[in-house]
């Protein structure tokens, strides 16, 4: 119950941040949803047994499931590296990470124009205009 609530709060916060236009907020959203994912992995192992998984000090019958723990441990480090990567994405290229203030140019089509491909006219709808 409590774990599910925590997951719910984290997910809701993450999705809310995803709807924002600043890269940094989206990255923060990713960090939150990463937490949520890790806790779901823990939930999969059950939350009734909570004794540390160390032999021989713990009795196997009350020992926490070590398998999700191992998954989560590597997941945390991977998430860290991805966070770093996204942060670098946020600070390169444009002066700000706010995607709302940009003119919809210099996009995929323009970049592939260097490959001799005709530029594809982009549709702009109301939502994307600053």
């Amino acid at each position: 119950m409590t774990l599910a609530l925590t997951v719910a709060i984290l997910t809701a916060g993450a999705v809310y941040l995803f709807t924002k236009r600043e890269m940094l907020r989206i990255i923060l959203g990713f960090v939150l949803i990463g937490h949520a994912g890790n806790l779901i992995l823990f939930a999969a192992g059950g939350t009734d047994r909570r004794t540390e998984a160390f032999h021989p000090s713990a009795d196997p019958s009350v020992m926490a499931d070590p398998l999700p723990q191992a998954f989560v441990l590597t997941a945390i480090v991977i998430a860290f590296s991805i966070t770093v990567f996204m942060l670098v994405l946020a600070v390169t290229g444009d002066k700000t990470d706010d995607t709302a203030q940009k003119v919809e140019e210099l996009d995929v089509a323009a970049e592939s124009a260097s490959d001799g491909v005709r530029r594809i006219p982009r549709k702009t709808n109301g939502q994307e205009r600053p």
Binding site: A4, A8, V15, I40
Partner: peptide, 13 residues
Amino acid sequence: AAIAAGTAAFAGT
């Protein structure tokens, strides 16, 4: 969107 996703995550977990 946040509330929908949060509810879904809660229910699933």
